[in-house]
């Protein structure tokens, strides 16, 4: 089956345009915050990354549930894309948070509840990615990674509520009503850009997973292939 990626590529281009506009607004137009000064501009990239990461992790959880319920390969392809994207976004969040922490908290890292639970999430999803890499049998790989995703997702609400449940260095979430309009515009533009970009990337990634599975199923182990066909495959 010939797979095309025109639509997801268009999403990526649109997402990048939104991100350029949001970044320009956040860096050049929005005023510096009263107490945190220019460093607060990191929030225009850190907060959209956090929102997107939470949504992608929730999507991974939904894909895992759907795969276990319907046993349809398309949910496994989507799960593969979502797991990989989650690792990238969690890693990015930790790096951005570290860069933010140094000028505001005075340290690059602190074992505070939010940061610790986030690091656990990153480790969990990195582990699921490794699990998928090492299991060769497609059904076992899909089932195990779906179960592991559901277990790993337990940490997501803990990450979200950690700043409310425990005494944390990390500030609590602000609501739309508590953010000034000048700060909200670059935040929402970058969030929209991030969502479009990630939707495009994940669509392409899940199509790649489908192609790889197609090939995996089409190609029997070389030892079982008749000699003439094997030489054609090797060529």
């Amino acid at each position: 089956m010939k797979k095309r990626i025109v639509f997801p590529l268009a999403l990526i281009v649109l997402g990048m345009l939104c991100l350029f506009a949001g970044t320009y607004d956040g860096l050049a137009i929005a005023p510096a915050e009263q107490h945190m000064g220019d460093v607060q501009r990191i929030m225009y990239v850190h907060v959209p990354t956090a929102w997107t990461a939470m949504l992608v992790l929730t999507w991974a959880f939904v894909c895992a549930l759907m795969y276990l319920t319907f046993a349809a390969w398309r949910w496994d392809h989507r799960l593969e894309a979502a797991i990989e994207m989650s690792v990238v976004l969690c890693l990015l969040l930790c790096i951005q948070g570290s860069i933010w922490a140094k000028p505001t908290w005075g340290v690059w890292w602190d074992w505070d509840p939010r940061l610790t639970t986030m690091a656990v999430l990153l480790m969990a999803f990195s582990g699921i990615t490794a699990l998928r890499f090492f299991i060769e049998e497609p059904v076992k790989r899909a089932t195990w990674s779906a179960v592991a995703t559901i277990i790993g997702y337990v940490d997501v609400p803990i990450v979200y509520f950690s700043v409310k449940w425990w005494n944390s260095l990390h500030q609590q979430q602000s609501g739309v009503s508590t953010i000034s309009r000048e700060f909200l515009i670059p935040l929402l533009m970058n969030f929209a850009g991030m969502m479009l970009l990630i939707a495009g990337i994940m669509t392409i990634r899940s199509r790649t997973a489908a192609l790889r599975l197609e090939e995996e199923i089409a190609l029997p182990p070389l030892t079982l292939v008749p000699a003439a066909a094997a030489s054609e495959v090797m060529a």
Partner: peptide, 16 residues
């Protein structure tokens, strides 16, 4: 009040 810090802002955007 945090003053300066543009190098951290550029670093965060560049890494992202």
């Amino acid at each position: 009040i945090v003053s300066g810090g543009w190098e951290f802002v550029w670093a965060a955007y560049a890494v992202s």
